[in-house]
Design a protein around this nucleic acid. Structure first.
Lengths: 191, 191
DNA sequence: GTCGTTGGCCAACACTTGTTGACAAGAGTA
DNA sequence: TACTCTTGTCAACAAGTGTTGGCCAACGAC
């Protein structure tokens, strides 16, 4: 039997308008500065509606921060290309979906958001790296190193907007970062 | 003639107690969640004193976020050791002084703090890297790449607390990260 | 039509925020 | 002593926050 699909409600449009506005605000302002009132205004409805549909700001964020990295299967590509492919994918995913930005901006000051980030790492990043077949104990470290490099780039380029990284062409970013990730994921020893 | 030293006031102890408490709170909570009242309570005085001595929350943060990275002279060390030395220095500086944590936590959601971060980069990091003598145009990019890697590590290890990076021994962190920084700073081409 | 259910808005609540002004105690000086 | 500047406290303001409950209109089944 198929899962019980709750039949579409008349308010679905409003619900998703709220969610979209919430993602936008959380991404632009972080958790505390993004107000329910501003989100409601963006969605063109009353603040009370946000509470009715999402109960609390906390749970609204939880709904808005749902995110799937959609990491490609790294075992199904030439082992020497893993670095490039992952960096390309990460940058694309970051730029096409503001959820990651919301998650990062919130995670820096909000416990629940930081938990989300750790969960995302544990559920999506770590397993994908582990599948590459390295010593399991080291695999987690490798995944962490990769996350540090990728999140650091995103932080400096998209959040802090450090001029040299904002200016840099995407191709150059990939050219510089990919070898690092490649090394973190596949090199036998640190150096 | 020497600079006009304002003679010590009786309230200097209070002033620096406020500043210390402010740094602590900004580091732990970020800009918006760190309240004047909490800072004053930590310093054991009345919130009004904070305003008297630092005028506004904005200017209190400006005072608390004053920071000198104290980057070593990279031209005065073996060129092959630049990576290790910079990473070691950065981690030490991060761990011994909570100002950097305050700066990062705040910069993610606060414009003025982000400006501070960019200024710190432009005034302290970029020149130090430029002194290494690479093509000036590329030097800025190299500095940016280094910042991305170092800040990314700090973000994941100290702010987001990703388990594998929290667990990892400091020596291992250095062993993995240093070659990356070394490459960003001294390699001719990306790979 | 009628009537219950749903979607929506409004006004208000309790609370926290940064910030201000009035005022009391203490030190230092005449 | 009296007088002034400093250091400090207290109470309050005005604005903004998440959140709540009541009320109205429109829809859909009967």
């Amino acid at each position: 039997m198929t899962a019980t699909e709750p039949r579409p409600r008349r308010s679905d449009a409003t619900r998703s308008a709220i969610l979209a506005a919430a993602r936008e605000r959380f991404a632009a302002d972080g958790y505390e500065r993004a107000t329910i009132r501003a989100i409601a205004a963006d969605a063109g409805i009353d603040p009370a509606m946000v509470m009715r549909y999402y109960v609390s700001k906390e749970r609204l964020f939880a709904a808005a921060a749902e995110f799937d990295l959609r990491l490609p299967d790294m075992t199904a590509m030439p082992r020497t290309e893993v670095g490039i492919r992952v960096v390309e994918h990460f940058l694309t995913r970051w730029e096409e979906d503001e959820t990651l930005m919301a998650l990062l901006r919130a995670a820096v000051t909000n416990q629940a958001a930081a938990d989300r980030m750790r969960t995302l790492f544990a559920d999506q990043v770590a397993p994908a790296v582990a599948a590459l077949g390295a010593d399991p104990a080291q695999a987690r470290a490798r995944a962490g190193l990769m996350a540090a490099q990728l999140l650091g780039m995103a932080l400096c380029r998209y959040v802090l907007k450090l001029p040299p990284l904002v200016t840099m062409a995407r191709a150059d970013v990939v050219a510089w970062i990919a070898p690092t990730v490649q090394r973190y994921l596949t090199a036998d020893r640190p150096s």
